[in-house]
Write a protein that binds this DNA or RNA. Structure first.
Lengths: 146, 146
DNA sequence: GTAATTTCTCAAGTCAACTTTAGATCAAGC
DNA sequence: GCTTGATCTAAAGTTGACTTGAGAAATTAC
């Protein structure tokens, strides 16, 4: 812990992140350390908050790229303000609620299917969930809706 | 659609999966096609169900390896029986319920925090979901509850 | 019977989110 | 002042779930 700021090791200790992860986050614009005379990274306390914020957002299911995009608007060398935080966390809340709702829908369908055993592409509710589960990311998951 | 069974293209059309994905699943034991005289894969209708089952399970959040493990017990060239289905889907249900519960916990914490803006490592519920989370496994995800 | 489409195999590429490794330099404790 | 530990960079490796590409052989359509 140097006079001119926190070292990367300090941050690692206090956030629980690996040193390599913090450097990785830097390449994605989550933190913006300055360098000391010897070329070592030095962080401010606001970086602790930026990292914590990123960790929470990840936990909530946000991809790093999305988190970085959100944080791009925040001042680089200050902690996010109450307004910033409210804006972002409110958006997160909506996303979480949506994911809960989808899981509940799936659970209910599954409940209806347990013990049924039909496994029929034509008649099973799990195969034909009837709509808006439709398009998610790329890749598979085309079945179940359409 | 050949006389001696479904082609891989037929399966792709009917499941929405890419041909390459179906071949990939084969290497993981999800399907077990036979070969015709020319060396092309031929599938039975039960394979449609095995694939659909795998897709649903993935959708429910299970990893392919876990799905393969579950399906390893099923007869290779028949669709899963009602008993098989009930056994597996019941296990899934528990998993879904747990994930819903965790998301709800997160949502509630977030609700408590929206508008607070403290973002303090010392006092924020999102950061300190019960302290002694201290030493757990490696990597991230040490923050926020357990 | 020929052209167009599918399928075959196998290796390599992709994406996310990091970690690991290697060799070198910097900082700190005694 | 020296030794031990932290940090540096750059590149390559990891895992999961696939996709892409190349070149050849099989199948289907007309």
């Amino acid at each position: 812990m140097a006079k001119d700021g926190l070292t990367i090791g300090d941050l690692a200790d206090r956030t629980g992140l690996a040193v390599s992860a913090i450097r990785f986050y830097e390449t994605h614009g989550i933190v913006h350390p300055v360098r000391n005379a010897g070329g070592h990274r030095r962080y401010g306390r606001h970086d602790l908050r930026r990292l914590s914020f990123a960790m929470i957002a990840q936990r909530l299911g946000f991809a790093l790229s999305e988190i970085a995009r959100q944080m791009a608007d925040l001042p680089r060398h200050k902690a996010p303000s109450k307004y910033d935080w409210t804006r972002i966390s409110t958006a997160m809340r909506g996303d979480i609620a949506a994911r809960i709702a989808e899981l509940e829908r799936l659970r209910d369908r599954l409940d209806g299917c347990i013990g049924c055993g039909c496994l029929s592409l034509e008649t099973c509710a799990l195969y034909n969930p009837g709509d808006e589960l439709a398009a998610r990311g790329p890749g598979p998951a085309k079945l179940l809706g359409d």
